[in-house]
Simulated scan of single mutants.
Amino acid sequence: MGKDYYAVLGITKAATEDDIKKAYRKQALRFHPDKNKSPGAEDTFKEIAEAYDILSDPKKKDVYDRFGEEGLKGGGGSTGGGPGTFNYTFQGDPHAIFAEFFGGRNPFDQFFGSRNGGLHEEMNTDDPFAHVGMGGLGGLPRSFSSGMGGMGGYGGTSLTKRQDPPIVHDLHVTLEEVFSGCIKKMKISHQRLNPDRRTGRTEDKILEVEIKKGWKEGTKITFPKEGDETPTNIPADVVFVLKDKTHPVYRRDGADIIYPAKVCLRDALCGCTVSVPTLDSRTITVTTRDIVRPGMKRRITGEGLPLPKSPGCRGDLVVEFEVKFPERLSTSARETISQVLPPS
């Protein structure tokens, strides 16, 4: 007598396709080695996967129903009914089948507390989806309930895959880099599938991020599907978000740059000249004969950052005056100021 795969799943030969899926779900969760620590659980878990692999595939199931395990594995018949050439050997990964069935690259997040933990105490192993509120056919999520074919070697209709959420990284740039534009090379490591489409490998990749002139803080640069790839997911997009580095001289205000010019109280009252550096290493002289009040500004047109949509045009360089008041005054200085300055 060969193996009774129906008995392995706890069903009869009259079981429907939905019954087979429900039985696999129940048994796989019950005997998963991360939950069931009893001796032989790993072997039982593999046997459950093999039973599902056969009974969920119409061709394999037909041969098994007519000729039993011997016919399925080359010792009995074929799909034609005579001495057969059908030769089946289970070569699947039971853990991969488990992940594929539940439609997630890490089903433990959904059903188990952790890989080293166990099934949540409140979860019902007869109907684990009752706890997480999953809908769809046979307890499967609705997006995976249609098109579930046989899973021998991932045969049959493929499951609907969902793309992972974007992976977002901040990309810090200087004002000089925004002024001139540049290329940033960012090294990432991601998982890629081997040709067998089951096992994976880690690959390093250099992504070249083109920073265009005048780009604003918050600009997003997206590299589609550069996240980790698994048999059950669509890789996430990798997104870089521009962030301005703090500049030692300027502040940024859109396409304008602000230069704080500190002047003493005497110069503020009597007039002054300040030398203002530019982003392209020139110096512009700004002279005022007016009284400089705190917060007074002088705008130098066209000396700011390029405009993102019109890189040939530029914002302004804004000189923002800061008046430095003395810490103390001598008695004679007080008297002189009192005589010179009109009363308020």
Rank of each mutant, 00 (worst) to 15 (best):
S146K: 15
L137P: 06
P128D: 07
F108G: 06
V132M: 06
G118N: 07
R115A: 04
A130N: 11
D93T: 13
N87L: 03
E122V: 07
P94M: 11
T85W: 00
D109M: 04
H95F: 13
F108D: 09
G149C: 15
H120T: 00
L137A: 13
A130F: 08
S114W: 04
P94V: 11
P94R: 10
F144M: 12
G147I: 14
T125A: 04
A96E: 14
F112N: 07
N87D: 12
F112R: 06
M151W: 13
G92N: 08
F86Y: 07
G117A: 08
G103I: 00
E100R: 15
G92S: 04
F86H: 02
F129I: 04
H120G: 02
F111P: 00
N124W: 06
H120D: 04
D93L: 09
P128E: 07
A99K: 13
S143R: 14
V132H: 06
I97K: 03
T125L: 09
F102R: 00
D109G: 03
F129W: 05
G147S: 15
R115H: 05
V132F: 10
A96Q: 14
G113Y: 01
Q110C: 03
Y88R: 03
G136E: 12
T89I: 06
P94W: 11
G104F: 11
